[in-house]
Simulated assay, not measured.
Amino acid sequence: MRLDKKTKILKVCVRNLLIIAGLFSLLTSFSELVQATEMPFTVKTIVPDNQIDKRKTFFNLQVKPSQQQIITANLTNTTSQDVTIKVNVNSAKTNANGVIEYGETNIRADKSLEYAIPDLVKYPSEVKISANSSKEVLFHITMPKKKYNGIILGGIVFQQKESRISPSVKGTSIQNHYAYAVALSLKESDNQVSPNLNLLKVSPGQNNARNVISAQIQNDKSILLSKVKVSAKVYAKGAKTPVYTSVTTDMQIAPNSNFKYPISLNGTEMKPGNYTLKMSVTGTAYVTPKTWYFTKNFKIKSAEASSLNKSDVDIKANTNNNNLIFILVGLLLLLIVTILIIIIIRQNKKLKK
């Protein structure tokens, strides 16, 4: 009995040691992951004297026609290895979520954009920073000769060229891409630009592999719109009740940009036919918000609807679930029919006796 008791105690001790070892291994791995996700470099802007609001850390400059200026960003390598940083300057654009993009995107520049900010700025494409050291990066700005009202908005993006790869718990790898964006706004005049929005096009499409009605909204003025609210209703042509509705708030629209606002079909099949979109868009350029109202007829063709329905991931999932239900119902009916046949055969045998 004493031996059994000692054996039980030994088993409990071994089990507890294994649990502690497992927890220690997990915590060590978690610590490695945390270290792997630390930023390998930092960015500090050196705001010049013509910074409009010196409390801002992004570049918000008051400039003049033909003015040439150098602005500076200080990059610090926080690691014990050399780091190469890719540098890029892009015009600001608006994505489908009503968020301003300062990095490289597939979004096309709007036709109303008079000056693309990359054409006005010269800069190094790459910067190599030694371990645990800093380096200044210079950007040479040359403003157009013609006087410009409104703002020219873009962004400076710093991205690590080589991605750091760290082993994970199960032997796979985690690859981290580090990027840092700084807005660059150039303003020549305090004259207010009257904001304006246009509804360019309404068409069927997809967003994140899900069916939507896309309403292409354009800001053709050199002014940033904030606190944007979109309220949209889609009607079958001539109907009084909308088939699809969408309301989105707290968006922004970059100067001289357009974006495709998605009206979700919420996992339902897209049906061909003639439709009418009624939409209101409210945005603020200065202090007082302004609202635009749009009505536009559009058509969904049978081929378009069929193609989009086939690639909609929600419809595929619903179809697979429906197929499973049909199979289960079929099997249940087959089982009931089989039981009935067995009962009938047994009753006939009893009657013959």
Rank of each mutant, 00 (worst) to 15 (best):
126 E>C: 02
167 P>M: 02
94 T>Q: 09
106 N>A: 13
315 I>V: 14
295 T>Q: 13
266 N>K: 08
83 V>S: 03
185 S>L: 11
342 I>L: 10
170 K>S: 04
17 L>N: 12
203 S>N: 04
35 Q>F: 13
138 L>H: 15
204 P>S: 06
197 L>T: 11
118 P>N: 08
195 P>H: 09
43 V>M: 01
317 A>N: 08
205 G>S: 07
249 T>W: 04
320 N>Q: 13
241 T>N: 08
337 V>L: 12
116 A>L: 07
310 K>T: 07
211 N>Y: 14
57 T>Q: 09
229 K>Q: 15
216 Q>A: 02
3 L>F: 13
96 A>W: 11
281 V>D: 01
75 L>C: 00
90 N>L: 01
137 V>L: 06
163 S>H: 13
233 K>A: 07
209 A>I: 07
178 Y>H: 05
3 L>H: 10
103 G>Y: 14
53 D>S: 09
336 I>T: 15
299 K>Q: 07
37 T>C: 04
77 N>T: 04
324 L>P: 00
292 W>Y: 05
122 K>E: 09
212 V>H: 10
35 Q>W: 11
178 Y>K: 00
105 T>R: 06
212 V>W: 03
314 D>M: 13
150 G>Y: 12
180 Y>C: 00
180 Y>L: 01
221 K>T: 13
188 E>V: 03
37 T>D: 03
300 I>P: 04
40 P>T: 14
107 I>N: 08
332 L>G: 08
335 L>C: 09
58 F>T: 04
260 K>T: 06
191 N>E: 08
266 N>L: 07
339 I>R: 10
52 I>H: 07
313 V>R: 12
187 K>R: 15
272 P>E: 07
175 Q>P: 01
221 K>Q: 08
145 K>T: 14
7 T>C: 06
11 K>D: 12
177 H>L: 04
91 S>C: 04
335 L>D: 05
